[in-house]
């Protein structure tokens, strides 16, 4: 039975604990033993993207220390896992680089781990609903997450109705969403409108942050299917 260290991400820990629980349940359904290293906090991405590498470096080094003992590190966010892959080796500093690269090589986004590593396309969940998929940018472009969530959804019996421009950014972008709310908001509208066009019941993605932004906008406009994390969507169909 593979042992998996859950990197829950600060957002799921604080705002979307249900997504953390769903992630654990799916991994267990796929036959994993899940451990939760309690010393974890944040991957440091907010500081990197704000041009504060020094603050991020501290968190990156901490991440490496906390997750180093584990064979697989799995997170319900392509963006946070992507940060470990994309930035850590150049962020942590010369003396930490080899360790950071080794940890990054064992860090996965949930659907990527289930499908690519375990080959567990069918985790036993059955959800006969219609969904449309938003390809979250960092998972898509830094990790190549695109087919994996769709494979899991199909195996669970969901009907995928593809929206146009599923690979276009939803407009979240971290601090961009606050600094440039005037652009970020309309980009959420575009995404929700495209999703609504499919008439799917759910708008599923692999990143809580995109969904937080889309759901927050939807509460004002009422447009689009119900935003839901892939893990939360699938877990509803577990026996």
């Amino acid at each position: 039975m593979p042992t998996v260290a859950l990197f829950v991400t600060c957002l799921a820990d604080q705002v979307y604990p249900d997504t953390g629980v769903s992630t654990v349940r799916l991994l267990e359904a796929a036959g994993c033993e899940v451990v939760f290293p309690e010393a974890q906090s944040c991957c440091g991405q907010p500081a990197i993207n704000s041009g504060e590498p020094e603050a991020a470096r501290r968190l990156a080094q901490r991440f490496v220390e906390v997750f180093e003992p584990f064979d697989a590190i799995v997170s319900p966010s392509g963006s946070c896992s992507g940060t470990v892959h994309h930035w850590y080796s150049r962020l942590v500093g010369e003396s930490w680089r080899a360790r950071a690269e080794a940890v990054a090589a064992r860090t996965f986004e949930l659907s990527q781990y289930l499908v690519d590593v375990l080959g567990a396309v069918d985790v036993g969940a059955r959800v006969h609903e219609t969904v449309t998929v938003h390809d979250a940018c960092h998972g898509l472009r830094n990790l190549g997450v695109s087919g994996q969530p769709r494979a899991l959804l199909r195996a669970a019996g969901a009907t995928i109705l593809e929206m146009s421009e599923s690979e276009t950014c939803c407009g979240f972008g971290g601090t961009f969403a606050v600094k440039h709310g005037e652009i970020s908001g309309p980009l959420a509208d575009d995404k929700l409108r495209h999703a609504a066009g499919t008439r799917a019941g759910y708008l599923v993605s692999t990143d809580g942050a995109c969904l937080m932004h889309l759901a927050g906008r939807q509460r004002r406009t009422g447009v689009g299917p119900i935003p839901m994390h892939l893990a939360d969507f699938l877990v509803r169909g577990l026996p």
């Binding site: 960092h138 276009t168 440039h180």
Partner: peptide
Amino acid sequence: PYASSLCGA
């Protein structure tokens, strides 16, 4: 440089 969601497109 801040007017970007860093989506990578």
